[in-house]
Simulated scan of single mutants.
Amino acid sequence: MDYRKLKEEIILYSQEIGIDKIGFTTADTFREMKNRLIRQAESGYQSGFEEPDINKRVHPELIFPEPRSIISIAIAYPSKMKDAPQSKKGERRGIFARASWGTDYHVILRDKLKRLEEFIKGRVPAAITKSMVDTGELVDRAVAERAGIGWSGKNCSIITPEFGSYVYLGEMITSLPLEPDKPMEDRCGDCNKCIDVCPTGALVAGGQLNAKRCIAFLTQTKGFLPDEFRKKLGNRLYGCDTCQTVCPENKGKDFHVHPETEPDPEIAKPLLKPLLSISNRDFKEKFGHVSGSWRGKKPIQRNAIIALAHYKDETALPELIKVLKEDSRPVIRGTAAWAIGKIGGADAEPELQHALDRETDVEVLNEIKKGIQLLETPQ
């Protein structure tokens, strides 16, 4: 088998099916990544969403029989929204991070990888392949870095010369000995903009992230958001783009080459108040196709409540008071109580006092007391 020719054919086919970048690397152990992951675990910086077995994340042979090479792919996505609706008084809006615009990237990448697998097996029927996107054992970024897709930036994203860091990543382990590509030289240099502007100081050093402080992670949690992060959330409903938008390598990068990645402005930047009463069925119907919906509506609703408090939107008080009175979920009731106190208004104190008398959940009672304290404290 002429594997050099096969690699060229794979590259050409990848371009035909809309893969923007493709790279090849060995299936050797990801030794540097293993050291990073160990440091991450020892420092308590893991999110809890990742594969818990570090060895599986860095030893391809533990998850695939006799791996010979790994193919990494990248798909570019837009950084600017066309016809973005304006957030205005009485009609405040939240925002989903760019990686959650358009169709769920897992779906997009899995489709590309499946077609690539079928092409490879059409050429080499005995080939064995295993593809993964984000939720697999391997670290997408480590594979992409070693396969020459881009370099690993200080913002913990893969940065490509062509598309900046606005790329989705996926990979395929194969039994084929395909020639590896060379890694790319790091171009971050002494630039520390992403570290300097991270809203919560989650980027503790270049290329090292304390996931538990990262807003992108925090927006996906389902419990009460710790007080110190509420004022940092702004109007974010899912994810955070700050470390990408300040990156000089992303300046002027905006690609609209895949229709499926284009955002629906009313979904990517939705009105906040309707989110407070949206049903499970309506949430799935409206937001179910975007990656930001994977944790369900609860985190999005909690974040919407915090965003309304951020705006001090008094027009939202009737909806927030209704949530405080009627919602069965302590996290949502409690966050609404805190938001009512943050926003203020004539009805705020009596409603919070009534809630204090009828509430039985200890955590919600604590949030009601915080709301009352906010009313008594000049802001």
Rank of each mutant, 00 (worst) to 15 (best):
R295I: 10
D28M: 13
L37S: 05
Y166H: 09
P199N: 07
A202L: 06
P274W: 10
K322G: 05
M81P: 03
D111K: 11
C240T: 05
P85W: 01
L218W: 02
C214G: 05
R4P: 11
L276T: 08
I306N: 03
T129I: 08
T360Q: 14
A216H: 00
Y238G: 03
K342L: 03
D53W: 03
P78Y: 07
Y311C: 11
G170I: 06
K298F: 12
E61Y: 13
G48E: 03
D140S: 11
K114H: 09
P263K: 05
E249D: 08
A316T: 07
L324I: 06
R36A: 10
C191I: 11
V143W: 01
A41L: 06
E162Y: 00
S47Q: 01
S14L: 11
T261D: 10
G344T: 09
L203T: 03
Q244Y: 07
G341R: 07
G341C: 05
R93A: 04
Q301A: 12
Q244I: 11
A76C: 11
D186N: 15
H59C: 08
A144N: 06
F224Q: 05
R236C: 05
G23D: 06
Q46L: 10
C198N: 10
R213M: 07
C194P: 04
G164L: 06
G189I: 06
I120F: 09
D28H: 14
M1T: 15
P378A: 05
D28C: 13
C240D: 12
E42S: 12
L176N: 04
P161V: 00
T261V: 13
V124C: 12
A316V: 04
Y45R: 08
I300N: 04
P125A: 09
K121T: 13
N55R: 06
F30Y: 14
I71V: 12
T315W: 06
A211G: 09
Q40P: 01
E118R: 12
T335W: 00
E8D: 15
I63H: 04
E145K: 13
I195D: 00
I22S: 08
